[in-house]
Write a protein that binds this DNA or RNA. Structure first.
Lengths: 340, 340
DNA sequence: CTGAAAGCGCTTACAG
DNA sequence: CTGAAAGCGCTTACAG
């Protein structure tokens, strides 16, 4: 039924080995036989069997992509399609395919990664998140399996290749940006502190307050979980402080949209009464009301570069550890007001 | 280095065949030996080699997911993560993995599908789109390779299993909804007519106008391409008609957001001056201003069901052709006004 | 209930 | 420049 290397060999009057070498474009085969064999391959509509190739050559030409546990960052968030687009773009250029993790819970994801690694399903893995004390990451590190991360690892920094934004710095810059526009009471609505991206941004925010000698009360910081559970209440409380903030930094545009809505309920207008700035610059942030000032974090590049460095590792086990920071770009729209 | 079935066999004092049967949980093996073999597998940290298994058993336990050519529907659109979530959920339940297409252009995608099929990379394929005269779909149909589609195929309806919304009906219903609220001049901003979803919705819209004996001028229909190229101009023209619409149906929420913005530029308020309703109900549609009345099309279910039917096909070549319509649900928010 | 043997479709030293 | 042979790590009739 299926045409194999043997059929091609017979038809072209060469050995299977030669056909195999033609497929790999081995330079030791004469152009003449190459041409002849290729002709036969075309005529018989021969396509190499992926599985057989992988088994014999001990490589798979595919990379595994692991998303964070789905209730958190991954879904409903435009980050995902965009980072995948970056990954696919780079992978495709090197003829690599993408194998996607499908697990729901953290344990399922871990099991899937183990079976990807042990079962030789993929040549390398990209972790699309960085979590504090992540079992999956520790496993990959210990087995010395090629992997890269989108996001700075919590520890073992010097052993792990990753791609990230400079989250501490961009959060610091964001506060400075507000400071320059006259803001002195600056609140921060953070992300899930189990993810390093969230702790980094929080740290950058805090450091910026210290550096600018601004009030640094815990009242100005709202945790992800508190916000998720009772967002309107927490915003309510925030605005009822003796010195309510004049500006809010949100961990993500989705969070910013929600804040705007809760403020609306309180008849507080953005940016007239309070300014909001945010990170990640979703495609829709130009369309919300008011259009959101947000930091573009180059999601495509995060995926692209993570893949690039992974492929280097796959092709060369001795490839050096790389920490690559991707550029960001503040998109100023209408959610922030100068009160200087 | 890697521990194989042979190592396990030796250690457990059985033959490799027996180990293989234990892996497959073959009922002909005694519970006692199963237990013994499993113990050894655990102790040696044995994991079956995926490639070898696939090669020998001629199945891959993975399904290929093909997105539309990326400039069009697929990216920046929350449809993608959500449909993937549905696919992963169902696939994971049957221990299937996901192989994602990475191609950029239509030709690249086609080549990738051919190599997935011929190279036996996957057991079946899900097409995440339905396009008019699609080479990839024709290829799958002709090779009789198991596949399902998210979206009604352009032709060969009776040979192809697909999952879809009833796009003609929901577009018809949308017009009826506006009609009941007093609207008589109803415009439609459509999607890319190369996709069946767009032609179906357009047809439903047109039929509804006819059924309700409403004005059915071409001036009330704006094509996707015209809108993309000069959206503000086309909305401008629309509103300067002798009888401008009192309501607009948008093909997608993203389009609706853009329309709202262009209307704003013209100082036309939604819903005070004009109503807007839309399809797909993105997660953010609650946050835009005004919150958008939109039809939830159950994206997760589309992915889930497409996968379910695909797996049935994979497991049974004789599985009947199925056309499954997924429920929709109108989410009423504040972009539509009753002018009756 | 279990084993010996052939085979899945390739790749890759080794030999010439 | 090309071929014969072994091997990648499994599965699966077949035989007992």
């Amino acid at each position: 039924m299926t045409v194999t290397i043997i059929d091609v060999a017979r038809e072209a009057n060469v050995s299977p080995s030669t056909v195999s070498r033609v497929i790999a474009d081995n330079p030791r085969i004469s152009e003449q036989t190459k041409r002849r064999v290729r002709e036969v391959m075309e005529r018989l509509e021969y396509h190499p069997n992926f599985q057989a190739r992988n088994l014999a050559s001990k490589s798979t030409k595919t990379i595994g992509v692991i998303m964070a546990h789905s209730t958190t960052l991954a879904f409903q968030n435009p980050f995902f399609p965009e980072v995948i687009r970056g990954i696919c773009s780079r992978a495709h250029a090197s003829m690599y395919g993408i194998y996607l993790s499908t697990g729901g819970t953290e344990d399922e994801i871990f099991e899937e990664v183990v079976s990807m690694v042990q079962g030789r399903k993929v040549d390398g893995i990209i972790l699309l998140y960085s979590r504090v004390n992540d079992r999956t990451m520790n496993y990959l590190k210990e087995t010395r399996f090629p992997f890269t991360m989108v996001g700075r690892p919590y520890q073992f920094d010097d052993e792990i290749t990753y791609v990230d934004n400079d989250n501490k710095k961009i959060a610091h810059d964001m506060v400075d940006y507000l400071y320059q526009r006259g803001h002195r009471q600056i609140a921060f609505i953070g992300g899930d502190l189990n993810f390093v991206v969230s702790t980094d941004r929080l740290e950058g925010y805090r450091q910026a307050l210290i550096d600018a000698e601004l009030p640094n009360s815990d009242d100005y910081f709202i945790q992800d979980q508190a916000f998720k559970e009772k967002g309107n209440k927490s915003i309510h409380e925030l605005m009822q402080l003796a010195a309510p903030p004049t500006a809010i930094v949100a961990h993500d545009d989705l969070v910013a949209y929600e804040i705007v809505r809760y403020l609306e309920e309180l008849s507080i207008r953005v940016p007239a009464d309070i300014s909001i700035v945010s990170f990640n610059n979703h495609a829709l942030s130009a369309y919300v009301s008011p259009p959101l000032t947000s930091l573009d974090i180059s999601i495509f590049d995060l995926g692209f570069e993570a893949t690039k460095f992974l492929l280097e590792k796959v092709q060369n086990t001795e490839a050096p550890v790389v920490h690559h920071l991707v550029e960001t770009n503040l998109i100023e729209r209408e959610s922030c007001k100068n009160i200087g």
